[in-house]
């Protein structure tokens, strides 16, 4: 009992000493040399169980270990992700608040309606975490097997081709519109609530096809017909499915669905760098890689600068795509 009390006191003494030290550092202007100072919070702008939540929970245990701190995951859903990002943008940039967000919240949503944040001015990019595989697959009895075949079908039967998406204004919708524009065909875009509901309709033959990561596993089992991969490389699970570039179709450009860590603008540079380095390290761990793979994603680290450039570039390009569709405000 006495020993217990003793240790407790020693711990308190240590705590007090460190507190004094920290205060001392602060006084000489060496603020946050030992970031993180306390617990961190990570805002996920969607409810539990969605892909952003899954990505977050795939990396946070590793980040907690690497940074030796506690991370609270805060699900602030609603508004198609914009409420959580608004909350993040308005948070104090003290290096304790981060967010994990998908492409749409930064590169698409701000074009579509008046928001309370600017994706470039109010957001500090920290690290790109993952990208999703992206494939076009058609219902099993669709009469064409190749990308050119799909385009020809659409040209021969104007207005007949229907492609599903996970919802208007998402990346799976955007790619449908890019495809229609670049291939110069008419496509009926059928929005669903989420990728899986759309996939169910492709498998049931109610719509013709869908661009999505969820199609890959179904294509493996033969329930849908894979046409092309939109990624730069083929997917190991479907070695015979060509990429769009191999098929000679360059129209998709750098279109990709990604997830990344962001922070409020004005967050101290060392906090950004330390977090970014922690993400890079976490992505090298096999269990994190395996978890991402199980979600249909793969880790693609970019540091704060490069990730910020990608956000800005995507924001620009997607604005140009949305404008003629009447979807931008």
């Amino acid at each position: 009992m006495t020993i217990f009390t003793k240790t407790q006191w020693t711990r308190r003494a240590l705590f007090a000493a460190s507190a004094v030290l920290v205060a001392g550092f602060g006084a000489v202007g060496e603020a946050r040399a030992n970031w993180p100072e306390g617990n961190l919070r990570v805002i996920v702008p969607y409810g539990p169980g969605g892909s952003s939540d899954n990505v977050t929970r795939a990396i946070t245990p590793a980040l907690e270990e690497i940074l030796d701190t506690n991370i609270t995951v805060e699900n602030i859903g609603g508004g198609g992700g914009v409420i959580g990002v608004t909350r993040l943008a308005n948070s104090k940039p003290d290096g304790a608040t981060f967010g994990v967000v998908p492409t749409a919240t930064l590169a698409i949503a701000p074009h579509m309606r008046q928001l309370n944040y600017d994706p470039i001015e109010d957001i500090q990019a920290v690290a790109k975490v993952a990208e999703g595989y992206f494939a076009l697959a058609m219902r099993p009895d669709f009469p064409a097997d190749t990308l050119q075949g799909v385009i020809d079908y659409a040209k021969e039967n104007p207005g007949q081709l229907t492609l599903g998406s996970a919802g208007v204004g998402g990346i799976t919708h955007l790619v449908v519109e890019v495809f229609a524009k670049e291939a110069d065909i008419e496509v009926q875009h059928v929005p669903f609530k989420g990728s899986n509901e759309a996939m169910n309709n492709v498998m049931g033959g109610h719509v013709d096809g869908q661009f999505d990561a969820v199609m890959l596993r179904q294509a493996q089992s033969g329930a849908v017909k894979p046409i092309v991969m939109l990624n730069d490389q083929r997917w190991d699970g479907l070695p015979d499915t060509p990429t769009a570039k191999e098929e000679g179709f360059d129209g998709f450009g750098t279109l990709a669905s990604w997830w990344g860590v962001i922070a409020p603008a004005g967050t101290p540079q060392e906090a950004v760098d330390a977090m970014s380095a922690a993400v890079e390290e976490a992505l090298q761990r096999p269990d994190v890689q395996k978890r991402l793979e199980s979600l249909g994603l793969y880790g693609t680290y970019l540091d704060a600068g490069a990730f910020g450039d990608q956000i800005a570039e995507n924001y620009q390009t997607y604005g140009e795509i949305l404008e003629p569709l009447g979807l931008s405000q």
């Binding site: 169980g49 969605g50 899986n196 996939m199 498998m203 179904q218 329930a223 979600l295």
Partner: peptide, 14 residues
């Protein structure tokens, strides 16, 4: 079929 029917299903799929 490998189609999750709801959000819990989607998490289970992972």
């Amino acid at each position: 079929l490998g189609i999750p029917g709801d959000i819990v299903g989607a998490m289970l799929l992972g």
